[in-house]
């Protein structure tokens, strides 16, 4: 279908975009890569009066090494994330998960910031941001503020960003040496969304797992941190048995739902099995 009529603003700076967002009121929509917004517009599930295109805002581009973290512009495409040397060296989990998103053409347009702001419960990148304790820098009419991933995702397709705020960059802390990573995704079809996904980072020292980070995709209204699994893995033996035992608590704190793709109890089963696989692979077991 053809989208409803709207006005178009091509923002040239973050300040410009925020001003347009304030002027546009609640029916204004930010456009980044458009890979979630365009289908929504075509299906007429949204009817904005003005669309504010941020894809040419240079302040929202670029990937920089900030010492203890990597700072990624919200407008960085999935394709750029996957292929960026800094990200692959310091935060490879993000590159791995991004490589599973959609298909090459969508990854050429879709952005990291758009995927986080969209907060789709089946999106792969919110769970990664949560597991890695990423911090979002957002700018609104009152200025700039930081939102930790743990406070960003509040409900289905809903974040704690205000309607007149724009996500400008994402800071991903470097975990340092000794960490292994894996993103495990269960999908029914090529190019499909995750029925369940598990993002795992594990720091191993010879026969021991020092610590682990585990984030779950599509196990509730937003991404879920599998804290019980992380606790069970702290200073655990780096063996298949201890990983399997820890993975049993993967569903603690989750609120899986049933839909066309899977029933809630099946999702819970997947979360346990895939947590075991993701942690084992990240730990090199």
């Amino acid at each position: 279908m053809i989208p409803v009529s709207f006005d178009y603003v091509r923002a040239t700076s973050v300040a410009d975009a925020v001003a347009a967002l304030v002027a546009g009121g609640e029916d204004a929509k930010v456009l980044a890569g458009g890979q979630s917004l365009m289908p929504v517009l075509r299906l007429r599930m949204a009817a904005p009066t003005v669309v504010i295109d941020c894809s040419r805002v240079t302040e929202m581009q670029g990937i920089t090494d900030a010492g203890d973290s990597v700072v990624i512009g919200a407008g960085t495409t999935h394709h750029e994330v996957m292929n960026n040397p800094l990200i692959n060296e310091h935060t490879p989990l993000l590159a791995m998960a991004t490589a599973t998103v959609a298909d090459p053409a969508i990854r050429h347009r879709g952005t990291l910031g758009g995927a986080l702001a969209h907060a789709d419960p089946a999106g792969d990148l919110p769970a990664v941001a949560l597991a890695l304790d990423a911090v979002m820098t957002v700018v609104g009419p009152q200025g700039s503020r930081d939102i930790p991933a743990a406070e960003l995702f509040t409900d289905y397709f809903t974040t704690s960003m205000a309607e007149d705020e724009i996500l400008v960059s994402i800071r991903v802390p470097k975990l340092g040496p000794g960490w292994g990573y894996h993103y495990e995704k269960f999908q029914r079809t090529a190019q499909g969304w995750a029925i369940v996904g598990v993002a795992a980072a594990v720091q191993r020292n010879n026969g021991t797992i020092n610590q682990a980070r585990v984030g779950l995709t599509n196990m509730g209204p937003g991404p879920v941190r599998a804290s019980s699994v992380e606790q069970a893995l702290t200073n655990a033996a780096a063996t298949a048995e201890s990983v399997a035992a820890a993975a049993q608590s993967a569903t603690d704190g989750t609120r899986a739902t049933s839909d066309l793709h899977a029933a809630a109890d099946y999702r819970e089963h997947l979360a346990r099995v895939m947590t075991e696989r993701a942690v084992a692979k990240a730990a090199g077991i």
């Binding site: 053409a105 050429h108 347009r109």
Partner: peptide
């Protein structure tokens, strides 16, 4: 490669 149904002409 891009899906031309998912890009606005103005973009």
């Amino acid at each position: 490669s891009v899906k031309s149904c998912s890009v606005l002409a103005v973009q």
